[in-house]
Design a protein around this nucleic acid. Structure first.
Lengths: 211, 211
DNA sequence: TAGTTAATGCAACAGTGTGTTGCGTTTATC
DNA sequence: GATAAACGCAACACACTGTTGCATTAACTA
């Protein structure tokens, strides 16, 4: 009788119309997040944009945050990283440029806001899952660098990426300052200086200890 | 007639009862943010906690975010940094431990949430102001380190602090992972390795290029 | 292909938070 | 002490959330 999904967490008729509804809901959520951020992404607005009923959304998701998570995880799963280049420094710069572009897009603040909101409420499950997905996507970059001998086999990938991406998030959202080419280049230099093998680091024109 | 403050931005009778109302509002906002984060910090709840009228809040602040900014800026202004030690690495570690404690407190997610929310809506004025205030508070630490010869005179203080604090924010809120003693120590080592003068860096037992 | 029922559409409802306004009262300032 | 700034009070309109009962459609399966 009750159409709730919470019991199993999965729909028992995932095909056809249901799949179409899911697709439209994801599309509507992402569009609304891009257009007006989380404040614009209300259940009512999502339902209208997706041309479905509000009650359908409430029967599918416990609250709007679960719906947003669903859409963002699907979006992340479909996302692809930049093509690999010839050197780790080059690849890392590409990844950070892509990150900058994402965070500067209207979807950027929404991504961060969702992570913060969910951490404050329901723990860190979503951030961990989202971050884990991102690390998986970065695996080819790390493996290529290790294959070239630029990074040691046992490099702490998460620590490296955190040291690279953390300052970008911080500078953009916490410090409220722009992230430009030069800043990204300085991050790449620092990371390589700290993590890459001596032969790679030696080639860097890093004005070390002077930043 | 209309009691609005938005025109000048300042109250024309800031003393006595008005000052008491301001004090109670700030106290109520911080308490509510600590107890239940931004979701708990509604205009209604603030008014009840501060034992004032809702309309008074609406006449003072354009919206609840302005009220929250007011309370957080006052809180930041009254905040003090840890006492200075004998070495820059020591001081930086103290600051990062304090940051970790703040971010792990119930007020932590609220601070980030406010920064994100405001950046998405009204630009980056508040994050810049808040960050600027924090940098001012860190000035003694930098000047002491420069005085000891540990940091060069022209060190980019904002870049240094961003490289130190950014990964902590990222690891805690974006990656959803805990920040422990060891991680802070590794950050301090990395920062000193990158920014401190060679004589200081030489003393560090940083497992460089191995993380 | 037909039957079962999961999934959705529809409509009404209660509850809560936001933001505004008019008017009377208190009190800070000169 | 006079003036009006600031506040208290009360009522209002509006938007979003979340729920529920019943009708309708259509996805699965036997």
């Amino acid at each position: 009788m009750v159409n709730q999904v919470s019991a199993t967490g999965k729909l028992r008729r995932p095909g056809g119309r249901t799949a179409e509804v899911t697709r439209r809901v994801h599309k509507a959520i992402l569009e609304l997040l891009i257009e007006g951020g989380v404040p614009a992404c209300t259940i009512k607005a999502v339902a209208e944009r997706a041309e479905i009923e509000r009650s359908t959304l409430y029967r599918r998701f416990p609250d709007k945050w679960e719906a947003i998570i669903d859409a963002l995880m699907a979006h992340a799963a479909a996302d692809v990283m930049p093509d690999l280049g010839k050197a780790f420094a080059e690849d890392l710069a590409s990844v950070l440029h892509k990150l900058k572009a994402t965070l500067e897009s209207p979807l950027g603040p929404a991504l961060v806001e969702v992570a913060i909101e969910l951490r404050a409420n329901d723990g860190a499950d979503y951030p961990r899952a989202y971050f884990g997905r991102r690390m998986e996507q970065l695996a080819p970059m790390f493996e290529a660098a290790i294959g070239r001998g630029e990074l040691p086999n046992h490099v702490d990938r998460e620590a490296l990426f955190t040291a690279a991406a953390g300052p970008i998030y911080f500078r953009m959202f916490i410090a409220g300052r722009p992230v430009d080419e030069e800043y990204i280049a300085s991050i790449v230099s620092s990371i390589c200086w700290l993590y890459c093998s001596p032969s790679v680091a030696a080639k860097l024109s890093l004005p070390a200890r002077i930043a």
